[in-house]
Simulated assay, not measured.
Amino acid sequence: MDLLALADFNLVARHGGFGKAARATGRPKATLSRRVADLEASLGLRLFERGGRNLKLTEEGGALHERTSVLLTELDETAAMIASGAEKPRGRLKISAPLLFSQTAMGRIAAGFALKHPDVRLEITTEDRPVDMIEEGYDLVIRVNPDPDESLVGRAFLHDRLVVVASPDLPAPAVDVAVPGVVRGAGHRQVWDVMTANGPLAISIEPILALSSLIMVRDAVRAGGGAACLPISLVSHDLANGTLQHWGDIEGSDIALWALYPSRRLLSARVSAFLDFLKQAFPNGTPDELAVYIGS
């Protein structure tokens, strides 16, 4: 198989058309078209559906793009590394991270990593939705308690747990008495099963505020808006200084943050360096270590 033709095919697939690929790279459109046609002829397959104004990958073309684009990137990086005689990380590192972790810690982590690895172009997007790493071009994703996925591997680098907290002015919860609550998402009535110093307790919550961000929830609880269920790392400083009171821990609420990457991909120097940096930032992976980022 002609690697140059394969590279041009992936270039066109990534940009979504011959014209777009030509404009983005400065390559002649006719050259790209001829290379892709030669590749289709050598494989005996149609890789693109040509018609109208849009260019779409065929099923076979999509499979070829998915399986070869990452490998070609690795080949380019290996060649560049050998040519430069250097083994330090370089190139683009695209990461997806959840909202709360991004708001509380990722800015400092990104800055520290960039200072340590100036040849890496770090790009971080914040979103809680599951992303398709291959299709969307991510090198690494950070997720909370991810579902098992045979196509991904990784490691848990940070742990947390959920606690119920409230303003000191709010009376302690009692059995069968609903307390005002601040919740994330839909504001329907709910029951929180917590473990208190006196044993298990079911706290009935009547939401008076439904907010979209846990930072907003914490701030509303600080202002006396009601009780809330929050990660201990987010409120540990408030509990220590008496701004909030601890009503108990949510049973079975262990939280793990995982750094994940495609299992079929060779672990690049960039990804390996970022994983090492996370380990340095959170050597024991405890909520207290994350609280340091949040409170400083």
Rank of each mutant, 00 (worst) to 15 (best):
G107W: 03
T68R: 04
G52R: 01
D76N: 09
M81T: 10
A111Q: 14
L75K: 00
K94L: 07
E49C: 10
H65G: 00
M81V: 03
G62V: 01
E59I: 06
P98D: 07
L47E: 04
G85Y: 02
T78F: 09
T78S: 12
I82S: 11
K88S: 01
G51P: 15
K116W: 12
G107S: 09
A83S: 13
A83Q: 13
L100M: 13
F101K: 00
G61P: 05
S84P: 09
A111E: 15
K116F: 12
S84Y: 03
E60C: 04
L71F: 11
I95L: 12
L100C: 11
K88G: 01
A86Y: 04
L93S: 05
R108Y: 13
G85N: 10
Q103F: 04
A86M: 06
L57E: 08
I95H: 04
K56E: 11
L115V: 14
A63N: 12
R108P: 00
G91S: 08
L115Q: 15
L72A: 04
F101Y: 14
E60P: 12
G112E: 13
T78L: 13
Q103P: 14
E77D: 15
I109N: 00
L100F: 12
G85L: 03
G61V: 04
L99G: 10
R46P: 09
L47M: 12
L72P: 00
E49M: 09
K116G: 03
L93H: 05
S84L: 05
A110E: 14
G52I: 10
T78A: 13
F101R: 00
L71K: 11
Q103Y: 10
A111G: 08
L71V: 06
R67L: 02
T73E: 15
A80G: 14
S96Q: 09
R53P: 12
E77K: 11
